[in-house]
């Protein structure tokens, strides 16, 4: 059965919570973050975890929020709706929440990287911006 790994698996219905409301997946994510940070330090390879690809209970979310907490950087990107970029208490671990214009979450990721790609100004956009600024100055002269 080749090609089995190409079939995406998406689990959205939350697990039936245990008595304490924790499914164990939050704990698994935290351990995976440790492994991903180790890889990043060793090889510089960045990575991400899609929080929608795992069944998480509301308590799992709270546990992740409480453990990762707020770091030093908090940015909002205003591009077709808001995108919230928050550094966690652990430098290099970022929590990115993508909202659409209506404010619904369309993607929820944990990224392990020095600066998330979406924060950086893309080279092409910089070039386009330069052109626009030059044009503006020419018009003003």
């Amino acid at each position: 059965m080749s090609g089995l790994e190409n079939i995406g698996v998406k689990i959205i219905n939350p697990l039936t919570p245990q008595t304490d409301g924790v499914s164990g997946n939050a704990d698994a994510i935290l351990h995976e973050l440790v492994a991903l940070l180790e890889t990043y330090i060793d090889s510089g390879e960045n990575s991400a975890i899609d929080l929608h690809s795992l069944p998480l209970t509301p308590t799992d979310y709270e546990l992740l929020r409480a453990t990762l907490a707020e770091g030093e950087v908090h940015a909002n990107i205003n591009a077709v709706g808001n995108t919230e970029v928050r550094e966690t208490l652990y430098p290099g671990v970022w929590w990115l929440t993508y909202y659409n214009v209506e404010g619904d979450i369309v993607a929820d990721l944990l990224e392990v990287i020095d600066v998330p790609e979406i924060l950086k100004a893309p080279a092409e956009d910089i070039r386009d911006g330069l052109v626009r600024l030059r044009d503006l100055l020419t018009q003003m002269e």
């Binding site: 698996v9 690809s53 990107i77 591009a79 369309v106 990721l109 990224e111 790609e117």
Partner: peptide, 18 residues
Amino acid sequence: RSFLKFCTAMASLMALPP
């Protein structure tokens, strides 16, 4: 950035790796 955001949303929807 908007386009990257679109791609992220689509990848998440299609259960592709981030």
